[in-house]
Design a binder for these strands. Structure first.
Lengths: 353, 353
DNA sequence: CTGAAAGCGCTAACAC
DNA sequence: GTGTTAGCGCTTTCAG
């Protein structure tokens, strides 16, 4: 039996085991392990060697308890599979790391979990949460108690920090551009549950009639903008995926051959729409323009390259981290100055529109 | 001064503060907070109310110390910006969550950090690490001591668990396919530092001459396969990005107009190569085939859709998590049965080759 | 139903 | 240089 196989997996060695093995006090072990002064080099090395043999690893809990550890922030994300989120996460992780924070990631979309459940999962482990929680029914801030929560793209709820996007601005920019380019038969390809192949269609415009509840916040902004511009806008629903968008696009193009512009809920769906338009034998942008929303790098790789309402995800990540930083330090108070930010999309014209 | 503003941000309320405020013992507070039996409903509610007002949150360190918390695993990733990694991470997070594990994510690519540094960063916070560490010079397993490390795509080092990819197999499959399709002038577009616009080129094949050190593991596998098939293969280097690959492709196509197939280091670079070929006025796949490697969803969104050596990232994630699970439970021992897995790529023929 | 005591593993402060 | 003491905030065990 070697010294390394002495203990069972669950039975981790403690500082006392090392101290006993080395015939020193636990304090000496601490000094050796943390490269602290006031210990003879020889002792230090002997203790470190023993620690390694015993497989000793300081308990992060005991250490955290006595030292107060680095702050760790939870990052709650609905779907890492949509390139939007990793791009955002990448930025958050980078900036958090710069501040010495740890990031605990939760991708909650898989098991059909909700944003609030994700926060509940993260809560015991973190000092704060940044997240895209969806339109949470539950109260995520309450779960966190006194620890700050920064939510993105959410209107309701009582999160301490909030980052919103000005979809009305984006919709106006998009419509202005498309209209100026002579587009007249516009479709908004929305993300939603009831996305049957020939799903529900809903036309608005030339009036300020309230839009169907199923329509997303983004879709509603476009409906408002269309109404204001007095042009009709057909809203169709599809699952939030490229494949879903492709099918929905094929189907709407069959139903309404005159369509000359499609605005998609996000870039991923726009990529699907691009395919769908091509499937129908049409050319983008000549026969039909396609516009995305998000500004993820993917857009530049498509052919034709995607015209999109871009968000600069590095800036969004920076905004979230800085807002959280302010909340954590007390420089920003919940509901106070700077606790709510509104970011605007920028229209990036490439080839697809 | 309200009761909620009583304490400073750093000065978190402890269980004793709540107990004092409620006029009960700390044990009663514990019972109230954790929904344990043996407490009157009225007392429970009163304590919970007070706790909320004081912004009391149980210290995760104290709790972990006494209870031994959920295992938390570090996920070390070089670059969330390459869609390959989030696809992998997504799978790992999902499966880890199913097991009740937490995932601490570290995207170490930004600040020019190395994989070993990433592990050092993660180490105080986690019970194990899964990671793409690159070809680490340092010894990451040593940093973790007795806690398991599972590395992917790494030949050297003494990680307890290892998942490798059979690049020789992949290279043979690719070359067989391309050769059968009549391709004769092949280029391997490798990822590497010295990727000048008209960077170093290196031709191999018809002999088993050892390949330049700068060439990646993947590139070397292709060089071996080309030598075995006795066909020449030109290896060029480019930065590991779509933009870099695009430039490198343009430049090699100018230098060597006869090229009829490009195999890229990964799908992201293949996307760039697609653009580069188009830039040069050629058509894919007629004039020049393009083949990627990874099998990320992006490939299906490109035009033409990318033919690629695909890996099924959900399976890779599953393999990593299951290997770690075995290591954690002792079912798999370092260096023993099942501690090293080799996964094979599958050729997915779409449109680009 | 509630309280008091003990101790998780570690480090800070002070002895020796 | 090294050891001793105290205590971080919580839950477990055992008394009341």
């Amino acid at each position: 039996m070697t010294s390394t196989s002495r203990r069972l997996p669950g039975n981790r060695a403690t500082i006392l085991d090392v101290a006993a093995a080395a015939g020193v006090s636990r304090q000496t072990v601490t000094r050796a392990m943390n490269d602290m002064p006031g210990i003879r080099q020889e002792t230090r090395e002997r203790v470190q060697e023993l620690a390694r043999e015993l497989g000793y690893t300081p308990s992060r809990f005991a250490k955290g308890l006595v030292q107060g550890s680095r702050t760790s922030v939870g990052l709650s994300i609905p779907d890492l599979t949509n390139p939007y989120y990793p791009a955002f996460a990448s930025s958050v992780v980078e900036l958090a790391t710069q501040r010495g924070w740890h990031v605990v990631m939760d991708d909650y979309g898989h098991g059909g979990a909700t944003g609030v459940q994700s926060v509940e999962h993260l809560a015991p482990q973190v000092d704060a949460v940044i997240g895209y929680l969806g339109d949470a029914e539950g109260e995520a801030q309450a779960v966190l108690g006194r620890r700050p929560l920064v939510v993105l793209d959410q209107m309701t709820g009582s999160a301490w920090g909030r980052i919103r996007f000005d979809y009305d601005h984006a919709a106006r920019r998009a419509l202005d551009y498309l209209l100026a380019a002579g587009r007249r038969q516009l479709v908004y390809l929305d993300a939603g549950k009831n996305g049957l192949p020939s799903g529900p269609q809903l036309t608005t415009g030339r009036s300020a009639d309230p839009v169907d509840r199923a329509v997303s916040t983004r879709g509603q902004a476009f409906a408002r903008a269309a109404a204001a511009a007095e042009i009709p806008l057909t809203i169709i629903m599809s699952p939030e995926s490229a494949a879903g968008a492709r099918r929905a696009t094929q189907s709407v193009l069959t139903d309404r051959p005159g369509i000359d512009a499609i605005i998609a809920f996000n870039d991923l769906m726009a990529a699907g729409a691009l395919k769908g338009v091509a499937d129908s034998g049409r050319t983008v942008p000549m026969d039909c323009a396609v516009m995305g929303m998000d500004g993820i790098p993917l857009g530049e790789l498509l052919s034709p390259e995607l015209t999109t309402l871009s968000l600069d995800l590095r800036e969004v990540g920076r905004a979230a981290v800085e807002l959280l930083d302010g909340l954590l330090s007390g420089a920003i108070t919940p509901g106070g100055q700077g606790s709510e930010l509104v970011l605007c999309h920028r229209l990036i014209v490439r080839q697809s529109a």
